[in-house]
Simulated assay, not measured.
Amino acid sequence: MATSDRRSATLALAHALSAAERGLPVIPLSASKLPALRSPHRHEPHPVVCHGECGRPGHGVHDASSDPAAVRALFAAAPWATGYGIACGRPPHHLIGVDLDVLHGDAATTATTELRHLALQHLFTLPPTVTVLTPSGGRHLWLTGPPDVVVPNSASRLAPGIDIRGAGGYLVGPGSVTAKGAYRLAPGSEHLDPAPCPRALLDLIAPPTTPSRPHHTPPSPRHGRGLIHFVRSAHEGQRNTRLFWAACRAYENGLGDSLAEALTTAAVHTGLTEHEARTTILSAARLTRNAQPADPPNATASRSDTRP
């Protein structure tokens, strides 16, 4: 290893340990900004989904730790590392990175301008916070989020040139040296702590909370008989529609598997083939997770005009 590379590796470890002392989980990075340790499962014949449960290093951001001994062990296994990554979304800081990227020319200014426009539009103010300057002329803003909100990673979804680093992502830490240059703290932010993410900005970058489904009473055999009768009484032109609706309701109420055969028999009684009936029920089973409660098809009460 060349003297300059050895010095970069030593500095990377020093900076990583300093970040770990502040409770930030870190991993070693190569000069390409990628995790320095390769997957221990890369030679296995079949794809392996492992987030470090095997106990070996090489699982990317899942290796990140703020324990000094663990950090030293990671860097000892990757002596070629010239930088370090800081895992986002992890306690205690639940770090969120706002990456003002460089697209072309003076795009860093453009990304900053886009962020200011968003702040004006959505009525939030960006507080003074840790800011890291990138070799390409961009910058990373460090913010913290609440522990009960999972912020996903995104690229230019918020606005052109603005990427978000959240759960499962990482930020290149200041003091890292990459093939394109060094990352460094912006003047004036050396002694700052990551500031809380403004609520309005958090609402823009975090997915909306999935509304809870209404509480259903325990399914009863009577409800199952009603669905079967509903299918058996279908006329030509409504057989498949009624079967699909009834199967959805059955699966929503936990009766899907137990009623599948009876619903199939009822559908065949109306004139559908067994294959058609089973295909429709299978489609209902697959889609029920995202299906919303619906009115029975051909219901007698019309809701076409609800105005007073």
Rank of each mutant, 00 (worst) to 15 (best):
R6A: 15
S8H: 12
H15N: 10
A19H: 10
A20D: 06
L24A: 05
V26Y: 06
P28I: 07
S39K: 12
P40A: 04
H41V: 01
C50T: 01
H59V: 01
G60N: 01
H62W: 09
P68V: 10
P68S: 04
L74N: 01
A77K: 12
A78H: 00
A78W: 00
P79T: 05
G83V: 12
A87E: 03
I96G: 11
T109G: 08
A111L: 02
L115C: 08
A119F: 00
A119H: 02
T125G: 10
L126F: 11
L126W: 00
T131G: 02
T134S: 14
L143A: 10
D148C: 05
V149K: 01
N153V: 02
L158P: 09
I162P: 04
R165W: 02
G175N: 08
S176Y: 01
T178R: 00
A179H: 10
G181A: 08
H191F: 03
D193Y: 10
A195V: 12
P211L: 09
P214W: 07
R222T: 04
R225K: 11
L227V: 04
V231T: 15
G237V: 14
G237H: 00
Q238R: 14
R242C: 08
L243H: 04
L243Y: 08
C248M: 12
C248P: 04
C248Y: 06
R249P: 02
N253M: 12
G256D: 13
L259Y: 09
L259S: 08
E261M: 10
V268R: 11
G271W: 04
G271A: 02
T273L: 03
T273M: 06
E276M: 12
T280W: 03
I281N: 01
L282Q: 15
L287C: 14
A291N: 10
D295M: 11
P297S: 07
T300W: 09
S302E: 04
S302N: 10
S304A: 12
P308Y: 03
